[in-house]
């Protein structure tokens, strides 16, 4: 599926060279199919901040690797201490299906968990599991509503309305940086079409043609709570053994 998108992206790019105006769907397809690394290893810090300024910090070591039609991810929780060495593994298939497991050190057991909880919030943060994944462009109807320059970035503004009326957001609006095909800002609207959350890009790194978003901030405007997600020690296309994404490594942790 993603291969098809890459071919269509090449065709779209050829179209833009000859001066054709992109539509909303094509812009979102470009962001979805921009080059990604085959592997990535990084430390992830999540800083949760409430309206009083109280902060809670979660630290995770994460590994990702593409295996043809499946992307495998392993996350080892390092902090807080009561969840230390808890491990989460997911295998995401191109058809959109996903297998997920969790290893809880106290139970000493790897458990398969349902991947049907994408609307749940991840570790008490402002990100849902769905927010952290790549939503396929075909799941929404996209419309280019304008172009604007923000903080020196020329952006397309694309409104996306989900095909599934039961989806947790009634619509999203994304500001896509034109020459990089990454989101600079995104607004999420609740079922009453009220603004719920704002995602903003704080920092990114370029590793060749691969762009890694190294710091983003999600602000829930309805309850004045925010989460900063910061990646550090990012290594892309580094050799990661295939067996990193197995039950064995879930139990062993980062060693």
């Amino acid at each position: 599926m993603k291969n098809l998108l890459i071919i269509s992206t090449i065709l779209i790019l050829a179209g833009t060279i000859f001066g054709q105006q992109l539509n909303g769907t094509e812009i979102i397809e470009m962001t979805y199919s921009r080059p990604t690394s085959n592997t990535m290893e990084a430390n992830l810090s999540m800083i949760l901040e409430n309206s009083r300024g109280d902060q809670r910090v979660r630290e995770i070591k994460q590994f990702t690797k593409e295996f043809g039609d499946v992307e495998k991810k392993l996350m080892v929780f390092l902090k807080p201490n009561d969840v230390k060495n808890t491990t989460f593994m997911s295998w995401s298939f191109e058809d959109g299906s996903e297998d997920q497991w969790i290893y809880l050190p106290a139970l000493k057991k790897v458990k398969r968990i349902s991947s049907d909880s994408n609307s749940d919030y991840f570790m008490g943060s402002d990100f849902t599991y769905e927010d952290l994944g790549d939503r396929h462009p075909s799941e929404d109807r996209h419309k280019l509503t304008g172009e604007v320059s923000i903080d020196g970035h020329d952006c397309y503004i694309v409104e996306s309305i989900p095909n599934d009326e039961e989806y947790m957001y009634s619509k999203t609006i994304t500001w896509v940086i034109k020459d990089k095909w990454i989101g600079y800002k995104k607004e999420f609207y609740d079922e009453d079409e009220e603004l719920l959350k704002e995602l903003s890009l704080v920092n990114f790194d370029e590793h060749g043609d691969v762009i890694v978003l190294t710091e983003v901030k999600m602000n829930n405007v309805q309850n004045d709570h925010s989460t900063i997600m910061r990646l550090s020690d990012v290594e892309v296309n580094k050799a990661i053994a295939d067996n990193k994404f197995t039950e064995r490594m879930m139990k062993r942790g980062i060693r």
Binding site: D99, K111, R112, I113, S114, S115, D116
Partner: peptide, 9 residues
């Protein structure tokens, strides 16, 4: 065994 069926395990 464990398997996922229709969003349930």
């Amino acid at each position: 065994f464990s398997t996922e069926l229709a969003g349930m395990v």
